[in-house]
Each structure stands twice: as C-alpha cells, then as structure tokens.
C-alpha cells in the first residue's frame, strides 16, 4: 500500500487527540493540505486556524506549551522552518517548550508549485537548533509511531512529512525507537544511509545491486537528531563505504550529520545523493526526482563510485 506521510500524520494526530486531551492543533490556512483537517473535524474545540501567519503560529504554540498544552503546529516545511525559523529558535527551542512542528510538503516532491515551495534546507536549519529533535519518517506506519513518540516526548520536535505517496516499508509489528537507525537490508560491500522518501528508493537500489552480486546494507535514519552514531560507525567499520540519500540539499542535512559522525569516529569513503546546492523547479515529482539526481539509478551509481574508492 502507498500513502503520503502527511496522510498518515492526519490519521495519527486524530488518534492521539482521542488519547490525550492536552493536544491542541494549529494550522496556518493549509489544514486541508497538511491533513490537520482530520483532527479539526473530530476535535473542533482544540483546533485553531491562525491564518496565513507562520511567525504567530510558532509563537502562539510556545505560549500554549508554556501553559501546559501539547501543541502540534502544521504548515508546509518551507514556511515552518523558513518563515518561522527564528520564532522556533527563540520562542520554542531556547525555553525548550513542548511544541511539535509537523511540517508537510517537504522536499522537491511538492512538485508543480516549484522552487518557492520546495523546502530543501529544513533538516539543516532545524537540526542546528539546540534542544530540537528532528524526525523524518519513511512511510505511513513509521509516521504513525513517530507522531505518537512526539506526543509523549517532552520537548520540541520537528517532524518532516511529504506530499507524495510512498510505499509501505514496515508492517504493523514495526516498533519505532527514538534515535535508533533501522537496518532494512544487510550487506557488506557498502552502506546506504537514507531518510524519508529516499528510503524505499535506497532499498530498491540495494535489491538491484544484489542481482549484480553486490551486497549493500541499507539503514533507515528516521531520527536525524539525535543521530544513531553507533549504527553509522558500525556500518562504516563493517562495510567500509557510505552513501547518503536524502530529498534535501547535500548541505547541512542527513549527509552532513553522517559525515560529522564519520570524520570523528571512522572516516571511510562517502558519496552523497541529494539536491546539489541548487533550487528546484515546477514539475511532477517523478520528473523532478530524475532531473535532480534522486532515482534508483543515481543511488546505484553512487554505490558503485564509493565502492571503487575503497582502498
């Protein structure tokens, strides 16, 4: 089954609303797109539209949290992490207030809206703020559990969600562990470290490589911060080469987080699959992923390149 992580977010939020009456939800005039409309329908007395005003969205959430509520705020990743960056930093993270920023339509796969709406810097911005936790679920099931974790965790959480449907990677038995990488495929020749919508692409790349006799390990990093250092170092030791995959700029996101761990602990050859310091453009998601180098074939060539670099 395929489902966009924003769809799963809408369902999970509605479910959490029934379990915890302290949860309140705020949106900035995008509730039909972010899927907070599902919560709004079930719990209208706990849903507040702030209008097209993302700075106030973050600030009001800080006040609600300071008074004991658990606010989930949603808008597109572009506006959450960009427009409200300083409010998130100073009003939410500095006082470590219990606000959950569930940002949808992240990355190039927003599609036709084009570069102005394609957030490819949000992981970088959010992970650099002290006290912030950054989650990027890879499918609907992981999204459900990430939302539950966020609701239970005391502190600011940024959850990056997508517009485009992604295939299920996990079953209902899956157990989300905060800060723990998930090994989806075992292998010894190299490791693909992926996050978000790139996880299923990485997995498919590993399957195609296996047919060619190349055994590649695949790690799903759903928690960008705090990152699972142990899993990354072990993968580097075990396979001797790393490829990162993210629907984000190659500056500051997953690749940077992984490189930080590697240089300090176990430097090995590394290649990065991501958006190469450029803005996106309008187009359907499939065409965008192809043009900007985020396909199965791109991952396969990065793996081959990194293996060739192994001493």
């Amino acid at each position: 089954m395929a489902k966009a992580t924003r769809e799963a977010y809408g369902e999970a939020l509605e479910k959490m609303g029934g379990l915890c009456s302290d949860i309140v939800v705020l949106d900035a005039d995008l509730s039909k797109s972010t899927k907070t409309c599902v919560f709004a329908k079930s719990y209208p007395e706990r849903f507040f539209n702030v209008g097209i005003a993302e700075q106030n969205l973050a600030g009001v959430a800080a006040g609600l949290a300071a008074a004991g509520k658990i606010p989930f705020i949603s808008t597109f990743a572009m506006f959450a992490s960009g427009r409200a960056y300083e409010q998130i930093r100073n009003s939410i993270c500095y006082p470590k207030l219990n606000v959950k920023i569930a940002a949808t339509h992240a990355g190039l796969t927003v599609g036709e809206d084009g570069a102005s709406h394609q957030s490819i810097e949000d992981i970088s911005l959010m992970r650099s703020i002290p006290n912030m936790t950054v989650l990027v679920p890879a499918d609907g099931i992981e999204t459900h559990q990430a939302i539950r974790f966020a609701a239970e965790y005391d502190g600011p959480v940024y959850i990056r969600l997508g517009r485009m449907a992604v295939p299920d990677l996990f079953t209902e038995e899956y157990k989300f562990e905060h800060g723990k990488a998930v090994c989806l495929v075992e292998g010894t020749d190299a490791t693909i470290v992926a996050t978000g919508i790139m996880v299923h692409i990485a997995k498919e790349a590993a399957e195609q490589l296996r047919a060619e006799g190349c055994n590649v390990k695949v790690l799903n990093i759903h928690t960008i911060k705090p990152i699972d250092k142990e899993a990354i170092v072990n993968a580097a030791k075990q396979t001797g080469a790393i490829v990162t995959c993210e629907e984000h700029s190659i500056i500051g996101g997953l690749s940077s987080a992984v490189a930080e761990v590697l240089v300090e602990n176990c430097p090995v050859p590394m290649e990065r699959v991501g958006v190469c310091d450029t803005f996106g453009e309008s187009g359907i998601p499939k065409d965008l992923l192809k043009k900007y180098g985020l396909t199965v074939d791109d991952v396969i060539s990065a793996v081959k390149k990194v293996i060739a670099r192994k001493a």
Binding site: V24, V60, G63, L64, A67, N90
Partner: peptide, 24 residues
C-alpha cells in the same frame, strides 16, 4: 519569569497562546 523573550515582536504571540490555553 513566565516566558523567554528578547527577540522583539515575539512576546505577544506567546501571551496570546497562554490566554488561549486559559480559555480552553
């Protein structure tokens, strides 16, 4: 101290959030 402030323009939103929580 009920709210961390300093970056101008942000305190009123937080105050409004606290007031909204009281209403809820």
């Amino acid at each position: 101290v009920d709210m961390s402030t300093g970056s101008l323009g942000q305190g009123l939103s937080a105050a409004a959030g606290m007031a909204l929580a009281g209403k809820i």
